[in-house]
């Protein structure tokens, strides 16, 4: 048996390889078809669009990478990108830190009314982003909103959350409020699967609560942390709903190119510059992929 198989192995593998390339494809065909239609085709079409330029006068023309060079030297594009980068650097750590603290507090089992606490923190995530932005937009109003009421009641003048200087922070606040619950739940479920023996061992070794967090809990949820951060970063780059809705209330503080997504949206829908819009979309996609990859690499290296 062994000899036979040893002799025929090269032959068989070759045959299997030839066969596999067909049968394998047949098995993945349903997926590949869906993948080609839903993922590849739109991407390919976007790339195709980004290589042309449609003008009101002069029609459509192939321009090669000209759209790309133009966007990469366009201060408006960089302005939008820098704004979401700044937002990401501040919002993501704050959100992750609060969500982590909440998850650890829940997991400590020393919380009074833990279920209520968990529900209360998770509830904002159940509020649609559009509704949240409208609600906060109303609270931020300095004339008739909550801020206006506080000003009147206490006879003070609070800074206007929708002014040019503060509007990014105000949006960050909405997003933190919205996303803490979800991330807390992710961390909390990662903590739930830590085997109880580890805690027992730690207790026997005389480890304090903070020692347990540092030596057991944090390493245990590191993968979850990595995933959560990657999603938060992607979310930050894709910021759109909240500024787009608040723009109605603060039309001058939030420009039409406040975030890269708003910029792409307005290029397409206000200016009919579909080609430029496709270019911005591709560029942002590439930048997001690179940043997400770097974060994953950093997370993976720490784990190793």
């Amino acid at each position: 048996m062994t000899t036979v198989s040893r002799i025929s192995r090269p032959l068989r593998t070759a045959a299997r390889r030839a066969k596999r390339s067909w049968i394998g494809w047949a098995f993945v065909a349903p997926f590949m078809a869906a993948f080609a239609v839903v993922i590849v085709a739109p991407l390919a079409y976007t790339v195709y669009l980004s290589l042309f330029r449609q003008k009101m006068i002069g029609g459509n023309a192939f321009v090669g990478v000209e759209n790309y060079t133009q966007q990469l030297t366009n201060p408006v594009f960089w302005d939008a990108l820098l704004r979401v980068s700044l937002y990401m650097l501040v919002q993501v750590p704050i959100m992750v830190a609060i969500a982590l603290a909440a998850a650890l507090a829940l997991d400590s089992a020393r919380l009074y009314a833990a279920r209520l606490f968990r529900l209360a923190i998770f509830l904002p995530y159940a509020v649609p982003g559009v509704v949240a932005a409208l609600m906060w937009g109303y609270m931020y109003g300095t004339h008739f909103g909550l801020i206006g009421n506080l000003d009147d009641f206490f006879g003070i003048t609070l800074p206007d959350p929708l002014s040019s200087n503060l509007v990014l922070a105000s949006i960050g606040n909405i997003m933190v409020w919205l996303t803490i619950g979800y991330n807390m739940l992710v961390f909390y479920s990662a903590l739930k699967v830590v085997p109880g023996e580890l805690y027992e061992a730690a207790e026997i070794d005389g480890a304090g609560a903070f020692r347990v967090i540092r030596a057991i809990k944090l390493p245990a949820i590191r993968p979850a942390l990595g995933v959560a951060i990657v999603f938060a970063v992607i979310g930050a780059f894709q910021l759109f709903n909240e500024p787009n809705i608040l723009k109605v209330l603060a039309p001058n503080a939030i420009s039409s190119h406040f975030t890269p997504n708003m910029y792409a949206y307005n290029l397409s829908f206000a200016g009919q510059q579909y080609n430029m819009s496709a270019t911005v979309a591709i560029l942002m996609g590439l930048i997001t992929v690179v940043v997400a990859y770097i974060i994953q690499r950093v997370a993976a290296r720490k784990e190793a």
């Binding site: 723009k247 039309p251 001058n252």
Partner: peptide, 18 residues
């Protein structure tokens, strides 16, 4: 292209208001 023009009014003239 007035529709486009109006869409970037806030980015430019609107800045005078803040």
């Amino acid at each position: 292209y007035q529709a486009y023009a109006n869409s970037v009014f806030g980015d430019t003239v609107g800045q005078a208001y803040n």
